[in-house]
């Protein structure tokens, strides 16, 4: 590892001040950032570790919403009885991230702020119409994910929590790369009073996206059969050694049908 400056602030204010300086990077769980730094794919000159900000970790369910603090670990979301009761799809999703050791350290805030095109949480945020809360403002998930590893977060802005409205029904289905456990295709389906949303991670060239044709069909008839014949175009989908764009396009339909059947 190359040399860098390490900060571990004990207040959100000082964290924001430190994070605002040039070439600083926020360290949450570090499950992506540290390997990325080892490979020099990222080379921040200073790290601002949020692990002393215990106020940023925690789960609460009230008023039809699940609020999860940014520093809440995947293992804690997966094991939360409250989350499993309110949005079982979200607990399932958290339990399928990485492996047990990664889930003990990795955080929801880190995952969402990083917006890896194959990460799981962005699909849940967009499908459930979540609100991303920062130290400065609230951002609708619709406006948050702006492209590959890109979000609406500004310099020095720190994601502090995520508010998920509880849907009537939802499910997440993931076709995993068996080595990395990232999604080759992951589909999150949510039905609520506002309608049906279908989001896809792992497949899009620009990260997470919605599938309007599925949403329209499922709004009329929430059944796997309703989307069986709808072809997702391969344009704009990733091709790599694991799966080409045509394969991924087909997989989106398969995983979406499974998600509709699993929705509860």
């Amino acid at each position: 590892m190359y040399p860098f400056t390490y900060h571990r602030p004990d207040s959100l204010g000082s964290a924001a001040a430190l994070a605002g300086s040039a070439d600083a990077k926020i360290l949450a769980g570090g499950m992506t950032l540290l390997p990325t730094m080892k490979q020099r794919l990222a080379a921040p000159t200073s790290l601002v570790d949020l692990n002393s900000l215990s106020d940023l970790a925690g789960i609460s369910v009230a008023g039809g919403k699940v609020t999860i603090g940014a520093m809440t670990r995947h293992a804690d979301v997966a094991a939360s009885e409250e989350v499993r009761k309110a949005i079982p799809a979200l607990a399932d999703l958290a339990g399928w991230i990485g492996d047990p050791m990664v889930r003990h350290r990795g955080t929801i805030g880190g995952s969402v702020a990083n917006n890896d095109p194959a990460a799981d949480y962005p699909a849940a945020c967009l499908a459930l119409g979540a609100t991303i809360v920062t130290n400065m403002r609230e951002i609708a998930a619709d406006d948050f994910f702006t492209g590959l590893f890109d979000t609406a977060l500004e310099e020095g802005e720190i994601l502090t929590g995520i508010v998920f409205p509880i849907p009537a029904k939802a499910a997440y289905q993931k076709f995993r790369n068996p080595a990395s456990r990232y999604a080759i295709v992951g589909v999150f389906v949510a039905q609520s009073a506002a309608g049906v949303r279908v989001t896809v991670t792992g497949a899009g060239e620009n990260g997470v996206f919605r599938v309007a044709s599925f949403e329209e069909a499922l709004a009329k008839d929430f059944s796997a059969k309703a989307i069986e014949g709808i072809v997702v175009p391969a344009e704009g989908l990733n091709s790599d050694i694991h799966a080409d764009a045509v394969y991924r396009a087909n997989l989106i339909n398969v995983m979406a049908r499974r998600a509709v059947e699993a929705a509860r």
Partner: peptide, 8 residues
């Protein structure tokens, strides 16, 4: 359990 190669 955590992976000590990925913790400072």
């Amino acid at each position: 359990a955590m992976k000590s190669c990925t913790l400072l």
